[in-house]
Write a protein that binds this DNA or RNA. Structure first.
Length: 411
RNA sequence: CGGGGUGUCGUAUACCGGUAGUACGCAUGCUUUGGGAGCAUGUUGACUGGGUUCAAUUCCCAGCACCCCGACCA
């Protein structure tokens, strides 16, 4: 991608109507644009990162047998009435059509997925089953805040699993936990993300959240460093020691909830009459679990936890581009390098702007935060090649042009 | 939803009861190119409605929007 053609450009000033770091930096760097409180457009750079996050999640969900579907966002009132949530889910955006038919925008999808799978789950032979989607969710938050951390419209991966009994649900629940840790690892968040005990649903005593430690987090968690577990403050009264080793020396930290997993039991199966015949021909209720991750929230979270004073430092797995190529008045040479990088499959943002000052290009490269910066200048050529610098590090290296692709591939 | 704050060119800001200024941006030209460079010319603005006043962007009221604190967050 040539930066001269990129929609949009970076801003010199930070937006005055945003306080949260992720919103400030992502707006300044041209990743997102705010339409209204808690409602953002993903611009090309932001969308690329979002797509990479989604792809990682998609791969890990597929690897544990999840089958991707896409459910509607427009959900009829009757479905919500079946579970009592038309009245009880106060964050629902409700709307009426011209024919006075009423709908709610999807805030969660048990009301869709349960009757849908019910058409196909007839016998124990159809179980277990897991389906997921990555979709926009709508919640009428009383107060949107924290940029991408709590919005009224946001993306969510929601996986739903269906089992013949509680035991198979528990087994799968553990499998999902493992898959979630793989996701945090691929996103570079593993070291600061904790499996956290939180208030349970109707079915189990506790649910589990995945909390990423961040100063700006909305939640307070108490961490057992030895077990890498945490307890959400909301349940600390009833559970004040590590659930694993019973250690009471817990470390208090602020954190962002990046995922959660629930055992739903039969709450939704009963509401929609989701039953199956077991091997003995006896009718039984399907046992369900649900598992969420917020990709757009993760986009904001990574910006919150991975940056320095100059800008964002994207982990390679989700960076908008792997290489940011800067030309300092050496356009012909750089153009050739750009083509070589593309031919080698290295995703490159090429700052080809003739009118931009060197300083402006450096500042933008730091702000946007691609993992590798490659500078082509009279100076670097004199020294025998191009200058390569990692966004996360300090070392500059001069690499021969003929060996640049090889050098980058080796990293 | 309760409380507080803020609304001035595209962005960040200044001043002011009487002609709204600056910087950046943007446009044109020339110069410049290792950390947002320089000169010249040009371009663009008072959230909405009401009130007070000879006169309101400025004071008052209401609404709306955004931000913050709290409550809420299946």
């Amino acid at each position: 991608m040539k930066q001269s053609k990129l929609f949009t450009r970076t801003l010199k000033e930070e937006p005055k109507d945003e306080v949260s770091f992720n919103a400030r930096v992502l707006i300044r760097a041209g990743f997102i644009d705010k339409l209204a409180a808690g409602i953002y457009t993903l611009l090309p750079l932001g969308l690329k990162v979002h797509q990479k996050i989604c792809q990682i999640i998609r791969e890990e969900m597929t690897a544990i047998g999840g089958q991707e579907i896409l459910m509607p966002a427009l959900i009829p009132k009757e479905n919500w009435e079946a579970t009592g949530r038309w009245e009880n889910f106060d964050a629902l955006f409700k709307l009426g059509s011209a024919e006075l038919k009423q709908y709610a925008l999807g805030a969660t999808h048990e009301e869709v997925v349960t009757p849908t799978v019910g058409k196909y789950i007839l016998s124990y032979k159809d179980l277990s089953l897991a389906v997921f989607q990555i979709q926009t969710k709508f919640r009428d938050e009383k107060r949107a805040k924290g940029g991408l951390i709590r919005g009224r419209e946001f993306s969510m991966k929601d996986l739903y699993s269906f089992h013949p009994d509680e035991e198979t649900l528990s087994q799968y629940y553990k499998i999902v936990q493992k898959a979630y840790f793989k996701i945090w690892q691929r996103l570079g968040l593993l070291d600061i993300t904790y499996l956290t005990y939180a208030a349970g649903g109707a079915f189990s005593k506790y649910s589990h959240e995945f909390q990423t430690v961040a100063e700006s987090g909305e939640d307070t968690i108490f961490i057992c460093e030895a077990c890498k577990l945490a307890i959400n403050r909301e349940i600390i009264d009833e559970c004040s020691a590590c659930p694993n080793c019973h250690n009471t020396e817990l470390v208090e930290k602020r954190a962002i909830e990046v995922g959660n997993i629930f055992k739903l039991g039969t709450r939704f199966s009963s509401a929609f009459g989701l039953k199956y015949l077991d091997a003995a021909g006896e009718e039984k209720e399907v046992v369900m679990g649900c598992y969420g991750i917020g990709p757009s929230r993760l986009l904001g979270t990574i910006a919150e936890v991975s940056h320095d004073a100059k800008g964002i430092i994207w982990p390679e797995a989700v960076a908008p581009f792997r290489v940011h190529l800067l030309s300092l008045k050496e356009d012909e040479e750089t153009e050739k390098i750009y083509k070589d990088l593309l031919a080698a499959g290295i995703d490159t943002l090429y700052d080809d702007r003739a009118e931009a000052q060197a300083g402006e290009k450096f500042t933008d490269a730091d702000l946007i935060g691609c993992p590798y910066r490659v500078v082509v200048s009279a100076k670097s050529l004199r020294e025998g090649g191009v200058e390569v610098k990692q966004r996360a590090g300090h070392n500059l290296e001069i690499v021969k042009i003929s060996r640049l692709v090889e050098f980058l591939n080796r990293q």
